[in-house]
Design a protein around this nucleic acid. Structure first.
Lengths: 198, 198
DNA sequence: CCGCTATGTCTACAACTGTATACTACTCTG
DNA sequence: CAGAGTAGTATACAGTTGTAGACATAGCGG
């Protein structure tokens, strides 16, 4: 799947090919579930070249996390209808027939490794969490955003990775409605707070 | 840490020691994060003996899951005050200073491996999920229970494994209150439903 | 057209994995 | 007290892992 045309010598393109392969592989199998040889082969390259470009497996993973977490996720930056739109996106992407990769899948599949977890914590702070927090109004926006991420990650885990039956077979419309309600409880500014910024 | 008294030949005790060691190790490092030699050493035994008693690493893991998921968790079986009591237990056990192991830690650290995930799916259906579902009244109890587990697992992930700052440093009382509200939105019977059983 | 440097590969290594076969030795039964 | 079967170990193997050093070659500057 890798050597169609024996790609001309081009450092930038090769580096990008390795990075793309790594994103897919890490997202699909997690940090500990992939070997460098597997990543390299998919990019049409030798394993050691990966380290030449990225330094180490860990550094490669850090770059993968940075790229993946920087992509626009299912959390809209626009606060309007945030709960409803987020819930709909989540249900769609975790549907059994979908094969949507992305930051949540990457995070859940790599969380077991402490070094990977630390790298992802930084990535969340810099990207996903920051965006989510920015979309919230009211007190304790950071905490509420992280709780929102927790709900999204947990649902992703149960519905798609563990594959729990009731969530797998749930009616999408109904599940979206229910998740919208729950998300609203997470995301809406706490009552009795001045609705100012901060 | 393993050979204090060179334990007398006792199949049952040895088997139990291996199982205990495996529960701790799998919970702490996940399915792929531990080797049989490590588990065996902690039990004061040789690696191959683990396979003699349990058949394979996978079979050992299945037994670990069965035992761990059968233990009483933070979800009270009594429906009264379910949300509040569950939230309090969750916040306590995911506190940074606590080092509480348990089914959620085991699940999150082993979810990356598809075989492990399948084993855990069965464990949830048989134990945790069934208990949680049994504590709920109203329509779609199964789905609501799984969403509750998703919220618990997600919070555990963010607060304890990833170690997201706002959740780590949150005031326990306030976080408990907020989680109680969210959990209530998950757990309470949907409005407009006959409050009969199922 | 030559040569140099960036780009890439070959071979290798030391550690680790789960598991199999062959062996030893304890302890209980008779 | 003798033998047998259970409990446990030693050795090993084939595979994989991340990484290292020495070597090859493509393609551009002169």
């Amino acid at each position: 799947m890798s050597r169609s045309t024996p790609r001309a010598r081009n450092a930038a393109a090769t580096r990008q090919a390795i990075l793309d392969s790594a994103i897919t592989a890490f997202t699909r199998h997690g940090y500990d579930g992939v070997g460098l040889r597997e990543i390299a082969a998919e990019a049409g390259v030798t394993a050691i070249l990966v380290n030449r470009y990225f330094g180490s497996k860990e550094a490669l993973f850090a770059e993968v996390v940075d790229v993946s977490f920087a992509q626009p996720t299912m959390v809209p930056e626009d606060p309007a209808d945030l709960a409803a739109r987020t819930a709909r996106a989540l249900v769609t992407r975790t549907a059994p027939e979908a094969d949507h990769l992305g930051p949540f899948e990457l995070m859940l599949r790599s969380a077991a490794n402490p070094r990977a977890a630390e790298i992802m914590r930084a990535g969340i702070q810099n990207h996903v969490g920051a965006r989510f927090t920015g979309a919230l109004r009211g007190a304790r926006a950071g905490q509420r955003a992280e709780l929102g991420l927790a709900l999204l990650a947990g649902t992703w885990l149960m519905r798609r990775i563990i594959g729990t039956p009731a969530l797998r077979e749930a009616d999408p419309e109904q599940l979206t409605a229910q998740l919208t309600g729950i998300l609203a409880a997470v995301v809406e500014p706490p009552a009795g707070t001045v609705p100012a910024n901060d």
